[in-house]
Design a protein around this nucleic acid. Structure first.
Lengths: 153, 153
DNA sequence: CCAAGTCCGTTGCAAAATGCAACCCACCTG
DNA sequence: CAGGTGGGTTGCATTTTGCAACGGACTTGG
């Protein structure tokens, strides 16, 4: 994937996109969150082309999101595990999952999440790290504003 | 974008990906969150090819994430605004932004977010809708488990 | 009245990413 | 020694993107 030209677009969203902004990356990570570690299992579960899977795993390892570790010698076999950097992509996946469940599900949401510490069904929300309230669009002020809105809004 | 084959992969993440899982969609939405509404402004700010921008906006309108509204007749001119469905993609963008800031920024994070109600610098976190605590990977239990991990883990 | 500018696209063609199936190699199992 | 498993690579067709040019309907300036 060719990186987006960051000259005028140096935002963290774009940098995150360089890693997970394609069709398969987040789905691979999702399986990894659920405990999948091996090439064959990713491939079988997702139905992804093997060459694309190999390319994605390689990219994840190079960027420090996963590590490739041998779990046996002879024949050498490897598994792919999330690093802390990779595990912290969980919020991105949960946010996408929550949105998909709310707006695009036909019938029941297929997966119910339970938050173990409080033992309640979980709808992930994005909250303010300081006050804990849910974040709404017009309650956020960005500085410097990365784009120049035409009038004021 | 050809939808991912959902037969064995009917997860909300994949359905969200069908909308925003390409190189530009989230960046367009990001500009929209910041108040950009017109074709020319999106194009100029992002440097996106005009045909791709036209295709994305059309897709957003068709899927109900944006609405196309005339702001003048003669010549007919349209602007693109987020619908509620679209505004609720904010968490996805914030999560990507937070991750990019934390893990890929060289030097200072370019944008500081302030949460207006509590007047504090904001690091968006994904939290449990019930107890408000931040969500960690191993504190989430999914049912039914959408993939079959090999051993247990 | 004519030239230039603004806004929102469409069209054609080249480059890149992806999907698909076949192949490979090293081992293990019956 | 035949077949299966695991982890890939290679070649080729298809799809998606990027780029630049063009068009049409106005508005503005002189």
């Amino acid at each position: 994937m060719v990186p987006i030209e960051l000259s005028e677009l140096d935002c963290s969203v774009a940098r995150t996109l360089d890693l997970v902004g394609d069709r398969w990356s987040i789905l691979i990570l999702r399986d990894a969150f659920y405990g999948v570690r091996r090439f064959e299992d990713f491939q079988h579960d997702l139905g992804i082309a093997r060459n694309v899977l190999a390319a994605r795993l390689k990219k994840f390892v190079e960027s420090g999101v996963m590590e490739r570790r041998a779990y046996q010698d002879r024949p050498p076999r490897y598994e792919y595990r999330l690093t802390p950097k990779g595990r912290e992509l969980l919020p991105v996946m949960l946010a996408m999952m929550a949105w998909g469940d709310k707006w695009t599900s036909e019938g029941e949401p297929p997966v119910t999440l339970t938050h173990v510490p409080c033992d309640h069904t979980l709808a992930p929300v994005v909250a303010c790290s300081h006050c804990g309230d849910e974040i709404r669009l017009h309650e956020v002020h960005a500085d410097p504003l990365p784009v120049r809105p035409r009038v004021a809004s």
